[in-house]
Amino acid sequence: MDHHLILRVITKILVAPILLYGLYVQFHGDFGPGGGFQAGVIFAVGFILYGIVFGLRRLRQIFPDYVVHRLVALGVLIYAGTGIVNMALGGNFLDYNVLAEKGYQGQHWGIIAVELGVGVTVFGVMMAIFYSFAGRPPSLDDKEW
């Protein structure tokens, strides 16, 4: 899609706000709708848009496969790791109360941590799936649509 100049310009303008919105959704989930999952999706959409317009190759330079794949794993580890930390601090698995002096503060930290885990994994998985599908040779041409 190298010839679509307008697309390229608009995409460049759009990607940044999309990523920002993703961050907003990620960390504002306690107060309004949204959370890690939605944030991960939005974040991924930003990059995928970039990838579609500027080519998979350029996106892969920014986010190589191995990084994406490690992110997929990392998110789950952040989530489960939070639970393990809780256990180490004397609580039950995923009992965030032990994370801080006051129970509700601990809950805050815990929720932020696990939402981050969700976001990272979802982002990673979305990217990985996009890479996988986009990396396959298509059986249909652009024109055949």
Partner: peptide, 9 residues
């Protein structure tokens, strides 16, 4: 459950 992502990592 933890071993699986670790393996991938």
């Amino acid at each position: 459950l933890i071993a699986a992502p670790l393996a991938m990592l």
